[in-house]
Amino acid sequence: MLAVVTVAIVLQRHLFGVVVLTTIYSFLMASVLIVLDAVDVAMTEASVGAGISTVILLATLHLISTTEMRSFRTKVLPLVVAIGTGALLVWGTLALPPFGTADAIIHKHVGPRYLSDTIKETGVPNAVTSVLADYRGYDTLGETTVIFTAGIGVMLLLRGMRRRGRTEEGGDGQ
């Protein structure tokens, strides 16, 4: 199952079927998340990753040219950097608790309290919702503000000035 995702990623090196492959990748990621018990996150990934971001990417491709230039740059250095980083990270993960164990540190902190008290304190059985909107309300308020800001930014960038080409003088000349 995880291997399928990996293969999809390797395939993504192709030119501009990339967007379609990204969609498939998002759906696969959503199924992986379901297997990992994160149903809320999987739902978000399926609707956001496979839905909206595909639409926005396609809209962008409509605005710019759709063929990628072959790069003449050396590919060796990025590969070395990526593999080096990866090796370091693998070495680092060996100290983490094994996958799926119940006595890992993460399950000893606030998590169990949220799970045991959510019905008593908020009356909401879905712990994800209660943590999202209640216990960690500040976080979510911040995230909402970030989305708000991003929306304003996109509208400023794309709607403020109609397309005038390069008739404007000065500007980026110096």
Binding site: L36, D37, A38, D40, V41, T44, E45, V48, G49, I52, S53, I56, L57, T60, I106, H107, V110, G111, Y114, L115, A127, V128, V131, L132, R136, D139, T140, E143, V146, I147, A150, G151, G153, V154, L157, L158
Partner: peptide
Amino acid sequence: SNPLPHVLILTAIVVGVATLALGLA
């Protein structure tokens, strides 16, 4: 399973697509 990471990532996904849209703009 632990709900806390789910909450963090749930919001991160939506924020991620918002910033992706900003980058594409």
